[in-house]
């Protein structure tokens, strides 16, 4: 066991305690958390900074507003309902179509049909804080359902694949592509069963993937290799990630990006406590990159310089 401990230390794996104690506590002031915990505030910040985000269709703030839900949804065929302060992808409903029989039914991304009453109950639970951190009263947001870029079609099952970038002190240090599976129910969260694939910071091409805690090379549902897919507009993604750190002031940040086939890379949400599975997906520990950033990165330079630093120093071949 001691040997395993040493081996992990040698490969520079950051554990939960180290993430919390060494990086999150000192680098992320608590007063900044609401900026990222509330997705509506994040969206507002991003729009202010000119970053592309999925367009917002509407917000439901009170039980009374729920009555207007149906009319609010009327003009949209596809939409996503999510809690503004949700965590871990819980409480998100993705509707991709509609069906008219006796009453209107909404088709979820999984193919299940749900009624407006189901949606209303869901929104009510959301308002009451069922999905929010600490059970606080929350708001429900209805936004554009990303129509993802076909580049990932063969390696994802339903849902929206997204790209998670860890940004440390304004420098993107590690990234992974998260691919929904049948098991994850179309969600891109690793702990719900999505596949994570490491991404080479220099080139934006994918490495092998991870499912749960196991390393895999093919998507479990489609059987296509995960390895070697070039993520389009990689430089734009890295820039957006670095900018997200600037607009929030968080020193240790997870940035979730999606690729829309028309709108290009969109910033979906930010996370002040990003998970550690990204290390498994990349088969690399975060520690050496965080140390390199602490020692050598041009922390005060502009976004382009920081992104250039990341691409130069954190290439997959260079073991740093």
């Amino acid at each position: 066991m001691i040997g395993l401990y040493r081996a992990l230390k040698r490969s520079g794996v950051v554990g939960l305690n180290a993430r919390n104690g060494t990086y999150i506590l000192p680098r992320n002031s608590r007063h900044l958390y609401p900026l990222v915990d509330d997705k509506l505030r994040t969206k507002a910040l991003a729009i202010e900074a000119g970053m592309p985000v999925p367009p917002l269709y509407g917000v439901i703030e009170t039980e009374h507003d729920i009555g207007e839900l149906e009319s609010m949804l009327e003009p949209h065929q596809q939409f996503v309902i999510k809690p503004a302060q949700g965590s871990g992808g819980d409480g998100i409903i993705v509707v991709v179509g509609r069906m008219h029989r006796r009453a209107t039914s909404y088709r979820q991304v999984s193919g299940n049909l749900i009624t407006i009453a189901d949606l209303q109950h869901h929104v009510s639970n959301t308002l009451n804080g069922q999905y929010s951190l600490g059970g606080h009263p929350d708001r429900a947001m209805i936004e554009y359902c990303v129509r993802f870029d076909p580049v990932f079609d063969r390696v994802s099952h339903e849902g929206v694949p997204d790209i998670r970038v860890i940004v440390y002190r304004g420098v993107p240090v590690m990234a992974m592509l998260r691919l929904p599976t049948r098991m994850s129910g179309g969600k891109a969260n690793l702990h719900q069963g999505a596949v994570g694939a490491g991404v080479d910071m220099a080139t934006g091409t994918t490495l092998s993937g991870v499912l749960g805690n196991d390393v895999i090379d093919e998507h479990p549902d489609t059987g296509h290799p995960i390895h070697g897919i070039a993520v389009p507009q990689w430089d734009v993604i890295l820039e957006a990630a670095a900018r997200s750190a600037d607009i929030t002031g968080l020193g240790y940040l997870g940035v979730d990006m999606v690729l829309d086939r028309e709108l290009g890379p969109l910033m979906l949400e930010l996370n002040a406590r990003p998970g550690l599975n990204i290390q498994l997906a990349n088969r690399r520990g975060l520690q050496p990159r965080l140390d390199t950033t602490d020692r050598e990165a041009p922390l005060d330079a502009d976004i382009n310089a920081r992104v250039a630093f990341a691409r130069a120093r954190f290439a997959h071949t260079a073991h740093a």
């Binding site: 992990l8 490969s11 794996v13 939960l16 104690g21 092998s208 550690l276 088969r283």
Partner: peptide, 22 residues
């Protein structure tokens, strides 16, 4: 509260990372 070492179950979780990367 200042223990920033690994949790025992993380040794299992990250054990794939102890093998040399391919």
């Amino acid at each position: 509260g200042r223990y920033t070492g690994y949790r025992l179950l993380e040794l299992r979780r990250f054990r794939a990372l102890t093998r040399p990367a391919s």
